[in-house]
């Protein structure tokens, strides 16, 4: 399992994917936070950091659900398609490792990229701490990162599963978008008008951005954490099943 994790991580950094992911994520989130004004998920106005001068990262974290929803599919798209297309799946699945070990190995490599990205993004709270008149309260920030990591891992699990259905990276990418963008946006102000009334409570329940709202303020609600964890576990489990089934058919 460790060997598979190491191999996947190495291949991330052997290709431009990891660098593009990290670069885009850092630039987009920081740009949004420092320079752009925007709306919160419930339609409230948010000005940029230099205007508000507020020692809070709520506005920074609020970009995460969409940014991760768009960027994480990039991390997932080559995971299984590459194995299927090049035929390496055959070598991999005849080595003395079980399917779950392969899946967890791949999944943990994605989590590692996520962890590296978040670690690099710590420069933002650091800058805020330096620039703001009042220093930061680090408690909510740690909470925010924990929540963001859980949400990120849920996205990874979704993307990894979607990529296991196809041999084509592009299809994997699009399929992940099709699932993860609705998950990201469900229940937010952006999609409020097209959402039918009966669907609204469900959308608010599954929507990542809605769930993330309390987290971005630094409040770690157990229900939100449990939700993200359950999504992760469910999709990783489905992935193991799919990989087994595809192999044996």
């Amino acid at each position: 399992m460790l060997a598979i994790w190491r191999k996947e991580l190495k291949s991330y950094f052997n290709s431009p994917i990891a660098y593009i992911f990290i670069w885009f994520f850092l630039v987009v989130t920081a740009l949004k936070f420092f320079f752009l004004r925007g709306e919160g998920p419930q339609g409230q106005l948010r000005d940029n950091f230099f205007v508000t001068q507020e020692a809070s990262l709520t506005a920074y974290f609020s970009v995460f659900p969409i940014a991760l929803g768009v960027l994480v599919p990039m991390l997932c798209m080559r995971m299984w398609p590459e194995e299927y297309k090049s035929g390496t799946i055959e070598t991999l699945m005849t080595l003395p490792v079980r399917a779950w070990q392969v899946v967890i190995g791949k999944f943990s490599a994605m989590l590692s990229i996520l962890a590296i990205t978040f670690a690099l993004s710590l420069t933002v709270p650091w800058s805020v701490n330096e620039a703001a008149v009042v220093g930061l309260d680090w408690g909510p920030i740690i909470g925010g990162y924990v929540g963001a990591f859980l949400m990120g891992s849920a996205y990874c699990a979704v993307g990894l599963l979607m990529s296991s259905f196809t041999r084509e990276q592009v299809i994997a990418l699009l399929a992940t978008f099709i699932v993860s963008l609705p998950l990201a946006l469900a229940g937010t102000a952006y999609v409020e008008s097209p959402t039918p009334d009966w669907l609204s409570p469900i959308a608010k329940f599954v929507g990542f951005a809605v769930r993330f709202q309390s987290i971005e303020r630094g409040v770690l609600d157990l229900r939100d954490m449990f939700y993200f964890l359950s999504v992760t576990v469910l999709f990783v489990y489905l992935n193991i099943t799919v990989v087994e089934a595809r192999r044996l058919k």
Binding site: K7, S11, N14, S15, S86, I89, E90
Partner: peptide, 11 residues
């Protein structure tokens, strides 16, 4: 050794 010797290209 599977047919066509599939290998990880980036290694």
């Amino acid at each position: 050794l599977p047919e066509h010797a599939p290998l990880y290209e980036d290694m």
